[in-house]
């Protein structure tokens, strides 16, 4: 597992916000042993950030709560590098064609959410999800490394949607238009804060992730987004982007919208 250097000031900031927990508290939250949790990190099922000076690893509280959801674990496996997911295992979650997934999100998600939340709220959930679906397909068009398409799952009880792809990730795409980008974390920050797109020219495009961010900050609950070894968390009514270099790099992009 690669060692990750954490800026301690940053760590203090995210610890203050209750975003990360030390391993003891994390194990207690899940009701499992410390050694099991350590193995989950080593297997790439859950991410940590490392405080190298103190030799400690910290777990993200949001990930610990999500991992109770089976589809979360499946999605994490889906984006493991050097992995060839067994498509039979993913038959309920794998969408090779964008149009099929669009139908799933706009029609089925609405049917599932109707009566639970307002129509306006549903429209924002779908709007954020569809920007992420669009990114998964259009930004990998013609350059899928292995499996073309996206993973999608919705959990109505836990109010979350997961969208993941085994594409090339943000860094490779954005490097086409900004050659100075050298790390996943820089690409991630740029993607969520600047109008930039690897597709098209002339200041056109490049709104999708900023729109998803606005949906979360103004209306929804949380967005967790990972590309390569860079992880981001956005929370409702909070304009900060909480970004970290994490222990387990993924292939492509992985997003959880909580609503």
């Amino acid at each position: 597992m690669p060692l990750v250097v954490v800026d301690l000031k940053e760590m203090a900031k995210i610890a203050d916000k209750n975003l990360v927990l030390p391993i003891g508290k994390a194990a207690k939250l899940l009701g499992i042993s410390i050694s099991t949790l350590r193995r989950m990190d080593d297997r790439g099922i859950i991410d940590t950030v490392r405080d190298v000076e103190r030799g400690k690893r910290y777990f993200f509280k949001a990930d610990l709560l999500n991992i109770k959801f089976n589809e979360y674990k499946l999605a994490r496996e889906w984006v493991q590098p050097n992995n060839h997911p067994d498509l039979k295992k993913y038959k309920n979650f794998y969408y090779p064609i964008e149009a099929t997934l669009t139908g799933k999100v706009t029609i089925e998600a609405r049917q599932m959410l109707q009566g639970l939340v307002s129509d306006d709220y549903i429209s924002v959930v779908i709007s954020a999800a569809m920007e992420l679906v669009g990114n998964a397909f259009y930004h990998n068009q013609g350059q899928w490394p292995d499996i073309e398409g996206a993973f999608y799952a919705i959990d109505i009880t836990g109010r979350r949607i997961i969208i993941a792809d085994r594409g090339v990730g943000l860094l490779k795409n954005l490097k086409l238009v900004r050659k100075s980008l050298n790390s996943h974390i820089d690409a991630l920050k740029v993607a969520f804060t600047e109008q930039i797109s690897s597709r098209g020219v002339g200041g056109h495009r490049g709104y999708g992730l900023k729109h998803a961010r606005m949906c979360v900050v103004r209306e929804l609950k949380k967005l967790i987004y990972q590309t390569g070894n860079a992880r981001l968390e956005i929370r409702a009514k909070d304009n900060n982007l909480y970004t970290d270099v994490v222990s387990n790099p993924i292939q492509g992009c992985f997003a959880v919208i909580e609503f």
């Binding site: 429209s123 709007s127 999708g208």
Partner: peptide, 10 residues
Amino acid sequence: VNSFSTSWLD
């Protein structure tokens, strides 16, 4: 219309 995204409107 039930829902919109920025990309379509743009």
